[in-house]
């Protein structure tokens, strides 16, 4: 198995964990009245931790189906699809025409960066739930997700390089 495929495997594992691991903890606060809210309505001050899938579930449960679908598409289906394309492209071997076609698709896919989508997901949750003075803490799942994004970018570079090398090799033989 070549290096790119190992990379795709690692990114897939990271993506799987990144989607379900704790990503963001929101610690609500009511400013100077926090102590009061603590007694009158303590459940409102409970810290809430979300995973990326948790964010999506919340969007659907609160009736924001449109945003939910957008996030499912761009933070789950799209990254998984991209890794699947990389896997096939990495296994094309000397079939350069097919590999080039696939890589064109993967580069198009890369334009919808997961990092941007992730930022969008965070913003949606933060804007929708934070009252004044509340804080949001990034959890380890966010770093795992970002690692998966960066890994996918590296795999993409690796595929580009190997394709160029094959073109050169083909050219010199031709």
């Amino acid at each position: 198995m070549n290096q790119s495929r190992w990379g795709v495997l690692a990114c897939s594992i990271l993506l799987g964990f990144g989607l379900v691991a704790p990503t963001l903890t929101i610690v609500p606060s009511a400013g100077e009245l926090t102590w009061l809210v603590e007694f009158l309505s303590p459940e409102d001050l409970e810290p809430t931790t979300y995973s990326i899938l948790g964010v999506i579930e919340k969007l659907f449960s609160t009736g924001d189906e449109f945003l939910g679908v957008v996030l499912v598409l761009f933070s789950v289906l799209f990254p998984v699809g991209k890794l699947a394309l990389y896997w096939i492209a990495a296994g094309c071997g000397s079939d350069l025409g097919r590999a080039a076609g696939l890589l064109k698709w993967t580069h198009r896919a890369g334009k919808f960066s997961m990092a941007e989508v992730f930022a969008l997901a965070l913003m949606v949750v933060v804007v929708k739930t934070l009252p004044g003075g509340s804080t949001a803490e990034v959890q380890w799942g966010a770093y795992v997700f970002v690692a998966s994004v960066l890994g996918a970018i590296l795999v993409s570079f690796g595929l580009d390089r190997s394709q160029e090398a094959k073109w050169k090799l083909n050219g010199s033989h031709g």
Binding site: L9, C11, S12, I13, L15, G16, F17, A84, Y86, I88
Partner: peptide
């Protein structure tokens, strides 16, 4: 067919997510 190979990353994503879910 090539698409069968494409299932490898998909299954890995599902497996690692499921694994985390199970242990948590």
């Amino acid at each position: 067919p090539a698409w069968v190979g494409a299932l490898v990353p998909v299954l890995l994503v599902l497996a690692s997510a499921g694994l985390y879910w199970f242990f948590s």
